[in-house]
Design a protein around this nucleic acid. Structure first.
Lengths: 203, 203
DNA sequence: TGTATCCTACCGTCCGGTAGGTAGAACATA
DNA sequence: TATGTTCTACCTACCGGACGGTAGGATACA
């Protein structure tokens, strides 16, 4: 069951996900937490404080998860593989939280907004640095690093939009497909048209 | 200037984009339209009716735009190129509307929700059909059509999240980059690692 | 005179948040 | 062991204000 604060947070995550932040009332959260509305204010200073807590812990968890998955992986291509796999897996396993992180930033005041965006920018920079390094070292095809990083990150993030926990494919399976799509296709130069039909002999 | 209804709609688009649907009050829309709140109800039956109008006209316009861009294009690879280019261009040119379409569906009642999703599904099916056909004909590398279509569509749709009208790249330039990324990379088999450094002689 | 358009004034409801209090565990003093 | 104090966690009851929407009248143009 966990602490009352965790119960409140979990209820808020479900409601923000289902109804959106602004459409969710404190009384809704209270009801789902089996608590009176005023009691929430013993654990959180305001409604926004709940949202901010969700956003920051989710972003921090994502960042820590990726760092852990990259630990000890040296080769840049393998690092990119691990990063994509971790990012997609996290977005399958924490679907509601990351969707809130994507759509409810407008519920934050300027100060909290800046704090969150700083975390997010630092996270995205890790991908941009990897891509730039991979291009430098000749592992990845040349291109606009900013645009390629946006393409990869948004595509992997959006998995949270369509992933279904009880669907045809598991989070692990989707991670594997995306790892391949990104690292062996999107980041590489392609073979010419119709080369697939007639195998090409190299070297 | 246009009709009063168009003024209201335009004000609503700006506000829904900036503050979100639920955080926007009818009085806000009235203020930005230089009209009294009650007057809005002469043109729209309810707040949701405004949202529904925005969503449906945007989705219909996107669908019509893509159809027009594909007219007369026969070769499947060129069709895919045209489709990606059109999709990205539309999402740059109608940034606010498509972002609302992506995030504010929870503001719709069940009936309206179904009507919108039907349009969207039909649109997405066009891409899935193209990808399946391209794979069949050997133009595109084999893979999970559903997942690949999601990857492509979400990546192209998300351009609306980061595109800046006065930024470094124009909508046309970004469309060109994405056209290449999707059709000559993501949909193709790649060359082996480091092949970029030493050119490969084929056939 | 009829109709479309817009207005002022108002309704009931729900919102985020607060005031102030109670039950009970923890602890210190004697 | 008995008694007073403090703290956490929760409660009931309420506040001012904003919300979406409505009733019914004024204006303007055909």
């Amino acid at each position: 069951m966990g602490t009352t604060k965790e119960t409140i947070k979990k209820a808020a995550i479900n409601l923000f996900y289902k109804k959106s932040y602004f459409a969710t009332a404190m009384s809704n959260i209270a009801l789902d937490s089996n608590i009176r509305k005023a009691s929430i204010y013993h654990h959180y200073a305001s409604k926004e404080d709940i949202l901010f807590d969700i956003l920051m812990t989710t972003m921090s968890a994502l960042d820590a998860y990726i760092d852990n998955c990259l630990k000890g992986v040296e080769n840049i291509e393998n690092r990119m593989r691990a990063a994509v796999r971790a990012h997609v897996k996290f977005h399958c396993d924490n679907q509601k939280e990351v969707l809130i992180s994507d759509t409810e930033l407008r519920g934050l005041t300027a100060k909290n907004y800046k704090a969150f965006v700083a975390l997010r920018d630092a996270y995205e920079k890790k991908f941009q640095d990897m891509i730039a390094r991979g291009i430098d070292q000749g592992y990845f095809a040349a291109g606009d690093v900013k645009v390629i990083s946006y393409a990869i990150l948004t595509m992997c993030t959006a998995v949270a939009n369509w992933f279904k926990p009880d669907g045809r494919l598991s989070g692990d399976q989707i991670s594997t497909i995306y790892e391949e799509l990104v690292v062996t296709r999107l980041l590489k130069e392609s073979l010419p048209i119709h080369s697939l039909k007639t195998p090409v002999v190299r070297e």
